[in-house]
Design a protein around this nucleic acid. Structure first.
Lengths: 228, 228
DNA sequence: TTATTATTCAACAATTATATTGAATGATTT
DNA sequence: AAATCATTCAATATAATTGTTGAATAATAA
């Protein structure tokens, strides 16, 4: 490991960390773990991986120092080892947005016209939360909501949105959020709500970014981990 | 490339960028390019690569959007495509320092006792530069110095330090810097100078970090690229 | 034009990473 | 203690990356 040249060894060690980020499934796992602890099974299901496959990716990332884990009963719960990991993925996103033509194309093509869905900044939402003039809508799955969410946020997972539309107070502007800047849930929720004639915008970033900014969060009674 | 699921495609695109960082030699190339433009030949020599090998690494990083290049006569000059690339490597370093045990071991083992070499912050050096009570010493090779350096810095490449010691004004504190936080040049310079009884400390980060902080820099007459 | 120089490309072997399968482990519950 | 469940490990085939060599380009100089 720490061979001849100390500098070479150091670069090699950093390269290991970068390699651990160098797989789509692993970045997806990191996005999920940014919401809170998760079991191997849950992560596998959410990312469309086999349990053994997920376990391998997780081991690799833990070795690289990106993740940590703890045992809780029969389950092993994985988490990001440190907030700096989220900063690293944010830096990766920024480079991708600025430079990689492939990313720009995907963002343009699929994330619809971003201008029309111009996000509400965290600062702005903070101000408007104090005025009470806005409904904050969390469109992530219930377990992610339970693990932590914005203050007074209403949780309606995206797939239930159509069915549970009446739960949303009328006449107030809606700000929807989900997992992060590249999570499609809030985009789709906003598009859907606007079609229904509601005034909806999405939050800049998602729950992890809000929390990382040091803003207030709430979570369900027991701070337990997601089960399914 | 941009297959079925847009989110998957996006993660895959980000993973490509991470992969492009996932090799020690490529991180070393990036550190060098953070000093300024370089030819393929120069990079190959500095990193101990064959020219063809360096060219392959460069192509890979350019495809990932990390680098850009331009032709100048017979030479092709590569550069970082954007300041966000430096931020990305900085984030990578931070994760490595915080988490990866391997990195901690290397830093402890080779970078000697960091406490004794506690760096001078950029802010502090800025203040002391205004007072004029400090000699700023650039220990990088001449061509890197020529491409850009701190205001009024004295350039004595590390390997010439012993020979040219008399060029350093007596009785003033010395602040040495080099390429960046994991460049050993300044460490070794400070260790050497202290053995000689001089009062020397090293700067936090190196030239690229100083410049990225928006602080003043100087460069040689013609803003030409390094030749060797 | 021809020769020279810097860089890129192509082809190959060697290594490393990935996906998949099924068995082994560790903790819990019956 | 046996059964169950979540996770990890091991083995394998496949695919991707790397290092190396030598030939092909592209720009300049003679």
């Amino acid at each position: 490991m720490s061979s001849e040249n100390p500098k070479r060894a150091l670069f090699a060690a950093f390269a290991e960390i970068a390699k651990a980020l160098g797989h789509g499934a692993r970045l997806e796992i990191i996005e999920l773990l940014a919401q809170g602890e998760r079991t191997v099974e849950t992560l596998a299901a959410r990312c469309g991986l086999s349990v053994a496959g997920a376990s391998q990716h997780l081991r690799l990332m833990r070795r690289a120092g990106l993740l940590a884990s703890r045992r809780s009963g029969k389950h092993v719960l994985y988490r990001l080892s440190d907030p700096s990991v989220l900063e690293l993925t944010t830096a990766l996103h920024r480079v991708g947005e600025g430079n990689a033509a492939a990313v720009r194309d995907i963002v343009r093509g699929y994330f619809i016209d971003r201008d029309a869905l111009e996000p509400v900044s965290r600062k702005e939402l903070g101000r408007r939360l104090r005025d009470g003039a806005v409904t904050v809508l969390d469109v992530r799955p219930e377990d992610e909501y339970a693990a932590g969410h914005l203050p007074n946020a209403l949780n309606i997972p995206l797939r239930e949105l159509s069915r549970r539309l009446r739960e949303i107070p009328k006449g107030r502007e809606i700000v929807a959020y989900c997992r992060g800047p590249y999570c499609v849930l809030a985009f789709e929720a906003v598009t859907f709500l606007r079609k229904r004639g509601l005034s909806a915008r999405r939050l800049e970033g998602g729950y992890p970014e809000w929390k990382a900014s040091g803003l207030a969060v709430e979570s369900a009674e027991a701070p337990r981990a997601a089960t399914t």
